[in-house]
Simulated assay, not measured.
Amino acid sequence: MSSSSSPTLPVTLAEALDAAVTAAHSAAGILQSYARNRSELVIDVKARNDLVSQADREAEACIVELLRERTPGLGIVAEESGGAPSGVASWYIDPLDGTTNFLHAIPHYAVSIALVAKAGTLLPPGEVLQEDTPVLGVVYDPNREELFTAVAGGGAWLNGHRIRASRTTELENAVLATGFPFRDFSFVDEYMPMFSEAMQNTRGVRRLGSAALDLAWTACGRYDGYWEMGLAPWDVAAGVVLVREAGGVATDLRGREPWPISGNVVSGSKPVAQAMMDRFTPHLMR
């Protein structure tokens, strides 16, 4: 498809970023209000170890309302209210990534908002996307007041300061993050050998309970690498942009998707991510 015939976004990336940041701050205000009164929360169980409260729902409703108002030409896919990709690009929204932490008063959770553009979309200054690609990411940690942002071609930022992925080159010198199976246990036989590889061949493995923050912390070099399986696309979409724009790798663990839309992600500095793939791939059951 030529650039002259390629569809363009109905808003600029700068306008979309401003809307996403505003939405993330507004949603975080709702979360923190409930965080001070957790005893009043009504909690529902969607499935085993899959919880939702009115904090999730109200925060998501706030985000969706604002994004529909500010970016009416974009589709919306949200964790609680659903939706499907539409148009040239769609928002992927996780109003509360780390719900279990939130409900147990563990101050490690975030709002995650991403924009994913379809293959063939024309981005400034003239790039035509060859595959579906996350092009904007916002992850906001209200407890530390850390705002991670990135847009395609614009780098990754933390509270206005440029961030870059780790420069670690050897797996044995790396600190990795992961997430244990907690909802879908069908891939345990694949995951556990990977965990063993990571445990025995790195400086250590951390598990803090928020995929969005794991990716954001990988983008700013706190982690040298991160992998997880069985996630949802809204868990990882924003973090993928952050890591890629910070100079790192964030890709589908199975090598099947242009981005980890299926929820199996591996990320980190380029050498560490490659070393992880080299050790993990033999354990995948294709």
Rank of each mutant, 00 (worst) to 15 (best):
R57N: 13
D18A: 15
T218H: 08
I163Q: 02
W157E: 08
S26Q: 08
E65I: 05
D56Q: 05
I30D: 01
P10Y: 13
A150E: 04
A35G: 03
A61K: 14
D141L: 06
G239K: 03
R68E: 11
I163V: 14
F280L: 13
A19L: 02
D184L: 00
A275I: 04
A89S: 07
V205T: 00
V151N: 06
G73E: 12
A150S: 09
T168K: 11
G29F: 06
T169C: 00
E15H: 13
P134Q: 13
V243F: 05
M199H: 14
F180K: 12
L96G: 10
S186P: 09
F102G: 04
E172T: 12
I43S: 11
G82P: 09
R164M: 14
R286V: 05
D252W: 02
L208Y: 10
E146H: 15
M199L: 14
I163F: 05
Y226F: 13
D278M: 09
D224S: 03
G248I: 06
R144D: 14
E170P: 09
V21E: 11
A216F: 07
A238K: 03
V175P: 00
A119S: 15
D132W: 08
G137R: 06
E197I: 09
A275V: 04
Q32V: 09
V236N: 00
G247V: 00
P107K: 14
R206V: 15
A28V: 04
S2P: 08
V135D: 01
M285A: 10
G263C: 07
P282K: 10
T281I: 08
L122G: 02
A174L: 04
R207K: 11
A89Q: 06
Q130M: 12
I76S: 05
E58W: 11
E197F: 15
L158M: 14
E80N: 10
G248N: 07
V188W: 12
L115E: 01
E245V: 01
T99S: 04
H25M: 01
G155V: 03
G239W: 02
F180G: 07
V138G: 02
S39F: 13
A212E: 07
A250G: 06
E245K: 02
P7R: 00
L176N: 09
G120Y: 01
A35Q: 04
R222Q: 11
D184K: 00
A212G: 07
V188L: 15
I43Q: 13
M285G: 08
G83T: 04
D141C: 08
G230Y: 10
L115A: 00
M277E: 11
L31W: 03
L96A: 12
G225H: 06
M1Y: 10
Y226V: 04
W227M: 01
R183D: 06
E245Q: 11
Y191N: 05
Q130A: 15
E69H: 12
D224W: 00
W259F: 15
K46E: 12
C220F: 06
I93R: 04
M277Q: 14
D132I: 09
D141H: 07
M285D: 12
A24L: 12
T149Y: 02
C220Y: 03
S4G: 01
E190Y: 12
R207L: 14
